[in-house]
Amino acid sequence: MQAKTGTWTEKKGLAQMLKGGVIMDVVNAEHAKIAEEAGACAVMALERVPADIRADGGVARMSDPEMILKIMDAVSIPVMAKCRIGHFVEAQILEAIGVDYIDESEVLTPADEEHHILKHDFKVPFVCGCRNIGEALRRIGEGAAMIRTKGEAGTGDVVEAVRHARTVIGAIRQLQTMGDEELMTFAKNNGAPYELVKETKELGRMPVVNFAAGGVATPADAALMMQLGVDGVFVGSGIFKSGNPARRAQAIVKAVTHYQDASILAEVSKNLGEAMVGRNVSQMPEAEKIAGRGW
């Protein structure tokens, strides 16, 4: 039989291999090696971590392909990279250089304020952010093979990550208790594709792998997200904006594996040095929040 590439099983499958793991933001080959050495299951290559994107302001775009290629050369684990929401040409470029996953990300400045990329058109798989079940299932409908709850990137404040994970997982629980005749109205009310609503109810979970992101800064934050029911964790600014990135990265990897074992969590939380300074999301002006990007 002819081998088939770029299938839905392949796209979803790579995300399944990342489960129970930590995906770390890295801005150069040296950081990528530290992340791999610490046990990251993948890295996200980008020019600036979200905390710096916030601080710098201006338009945040896809990173220089040369810089992404250097990171791909430096490590043996999967490498992800971000494109702007709706910027399908940035996605074509990232696919052409061979990244393993594309994050169509609200952390960058959106290129289209009405449409996301039709991700089924690509061979490379995509991950997208969501704040609720409707947003998640719309992204899957467009072809996202992995979902992450958005949180509020670059803040080091886990409160939004918790809100979004609880919202999504709560909706899945609610679906489980619904009769089949209620699903179309649920689909309408949530702006979600009906077939995916049905599938989510049948599975009792999101139809693709679901990680948490946006504000995870400590091993306890990571384990909190795991106990809430996500499949793994993205850590952005939380590692390389902290006092001892290598040590903190290792501790977060261990916390995600042993998320139910409080004595191990206590052990790995010791002596990590300064956490990233962080910004309190409840005191941030609405205009500075990025989780609202995405339609």
Partner: peptide, 15 residues
């Protein structure tokens, strides 16, 4: 040999 077929876009299904 790890990653013997290349990167994710080279991942495949076959009988």
């Amino acid at each position: 040999k790890r990653n013997a077929f290349g990167r994710q876009v080279d991942s495949f299904e076959t009988d």
